[in-house]
Amino acid sequence: MVRLLRFLVEPLVLPRWWQDALLLLPRLVCGYLLAFEFGAVKFGLPWSPPDHSLGLFEVAFWFPGDVASYGGLFAVLPGFFAWMGAFSEAVGGLLLALGLGTRVSAFLIICTMLVAIFMQQIQQGMWNTLPAAGFLWAALPGLVLGSGRFGLDYILAKPRRHEHV
């Protein structure tokens, strides 16, 4: 279990600090936009628009209907998939920006964006897939490398004093 956690949290550090800094940029932008713009309107967080009247961790009333329209398994459990998708965007985006549980949050975001691309947006033409595809590509380095030097994972995964380096 500890080994799995370490594998999930411990980032790969690139040879130069500026290389990690460069990969921080898309992670920050993607995380901020998902957590504070796109996710916050469909998932209840303290900074969700007050007009939307969303309770904490509540998914917007319209989202399960959208998800159900994808058909198949999505129509069987629309509430579950809507909640998971909205959570992945809003909370996953926040964690991605902070570099905390970076691989897990990147994985959730990538799954959500794949669903958005192939179940919703591609029917309206390739151009319409660009926003979701953009988030997918921005999250991909996080899935492979974790947070790099610039994230809470890096601090958490640092060897403790009692551990051997």
Partner: peptide, 13 residues
């Protein structure tokens, strides 16, 4: 349980 509980977290309309 997640499949049945999470739909309860949908905003009432």
């Amino acid at each position: 349980s997640l499949g049945f509980l999470l739909p309860a977290c949908v905003q009432p309309a």
